[in-house]
Design a protein around this nucleic acid. Structure first.
Length: 230
DNA sequence: GTCCAGGGCCTAC
DNA sequence: GTAGGCCATGGA
């Protein structure tokens, strides 16, 4: 499995180049983006982050200070604005209460402990917590999302229905525990998903088409159904 | 007009 | 424990 995962990484890197995620100026901006992108396309999130920046609201204290309705208005474009406003305030409160708004202190904290703390924050689930740990705090955790589930299912590596932890261990147990590698791998999976895995005709240009179980190549060789909707 | 997007929470069963 | 509903906008 290790060699297979490395081959997949190598091909995507050659095809798409280094992604150098996450697109943000500060670790806290990464955290905000991780919450806002829940079930939302990144373009909508960018609009919301730009408005938060303009309002000078991209710090834990500013988020705490803002009225929930004001915050919801600023992040309107990201969808679920009322819920996400509550989630951002809960996250900002946690950072203030537990770490005194000191992001460096969070970075130095024990990874497992911090993950448990983040999961206890309302609105932070496993994927969001891991995105924060990996991209904002340089912790070596792998982010499992819809893209990685879709990819591993199509490559016949793992069924999409696997639990989050099982899916995550597929990568963490078979790859060097390096946050830079995990960040790049996940970013490449997302880029690959956007460019090559969403529409069947694009499979012709997919760098993984010869090992894909459900792609165009596979479906022309058998009666295998084309890509599942999600 | 319809579908989907870099989830998570809550409720019912 | 798990399936389903809900939260919601913007782009394709």
């Amino acid at each position: 499995m290790t060699a297979r995962l490395q081959e997949i990484f190598k091909r995507m890197l050659a095809r798409y180049g280094g992604q150098r995620w996450w697109p943000a100026d500060t670790p806290f901006e990464v955290m905000v983006g991780a919450v806002l992108t829940q079930a939302t396309s990144w373009t909508n999130v960018e609009l919301a982050i730009a408005r938060l920046k303009d309002a000078g609201a991209l710090s834990p204290s500013a988020i705490r200070y803002l009225d929930a309705a004001e915050l919801a208005a600023l992040i309107y474009s990201s969808g679920f604005h009322n819920i996400k406003a509550r989630r951002l305030k809960a996250l900002a409160k946690f950072i203030g209460d537990a770490y005194g708004d000191n992001i460096d202190a969070m970075r130095e904290a024990d990874c497992d402990t911090l993950r448990r703390e983040l999961l206890a924050v309302s609105g932070i689930g496993e994927e969001t917590a891991d995105a924060i740990l990996l991209y904002a705090l340089d912790k070596p955790v792998f982010v499992v999302d819809a893209y990685s589930r879709r990819l591993t299912e199509r490559l016949g590596i793992a069924p999409q229905s696997q639990s989050y932890g099982t899916h995550q261990r597929l990568f963490t147990d078979n790859m060097p525990r390096d946050h830079t590698l995990f960040a790049e791998y996940h970013a490449l999976i997302v880029e690959h998903g956007k460019q090559a895995c969403r529409k069947i005709p694009k499979c012709d240009r997919c760098c993984l088409r010869d090992i894909c179980q459900t792609g165009a190549a596979a479906s022309t060789q058998s009666n295998h159904p084309a890509h599942p909707a999600k």
